[in-house]
């Protein structure tokens, strides 16, 4: 049976060599592999920082969260800072249950993510 793409991910090059990656839709077990490929693609472009804009993600299960934990590990390995932004309350709730909200750098939007100092 033909299947539609599980998730759309848009890329945008930003000032200072940063890259924003914006998934749209829901990220559960089915969609997480495509999200993982997009994240890897983002790191392969060697941006100065990778910003994952989650404003258009209406749902995220633990496979999506796990993909972002992997991204954080890649961030440390490659020396490319990772910032999550635009998270809805519903998505943030999953991070809070998993007690991962303190592990990631989070901002309200892409503009604020660009202003964060690299650490």
């Amino acid at each position: 049976m033909p299947e539609r793409a599980p998730i759309i991910v848009k890329f945008a090059s930003l000032e200072g060599g940063a890259l924003a990656l914006a998934p749209e839709g829901e990220i559960g077990y089915h969609e997480a592999p495509a999200f993982r490929v997009a994240i890897k693609d983002g790191y392969d472009r060697r941006p100065s920082r990778l910003i994952v804009d989650l404003a258009k993600v209406g749902y995220m299960g633990t496979p999506g969260v796990a993909t972002l934990v992997e991204a954080l590990q890649l961030s440390k390995k490659n020396g490319i800072p990772l910032v999550l932004c635009g998270m809805t309350d519903r998505v943030r709730g999953v991070f809070e249950i998993a007690q991962l909200h303190k592990v990631f750098r989070m901002t309200p939007d892409v503009a604020a993510a660009l202003l964060l100092k690299a650490s």
């Binding site: 299960g61 633990t62 969260v65 796990a66 993909t67 934990v69 992997e70 954080l72 590990q73 999953v94 249950i97 998993a98 007690q99 991962l100 592990v103």
Partner: peptide
Amino acid sequence: DLADIRPGGLGVHIIREI
């Protein structure tokens, strides 16, 4: 264990928490 920051293994924790 949530102190162990790694991908995976969160589903059962989420279910029990909710």
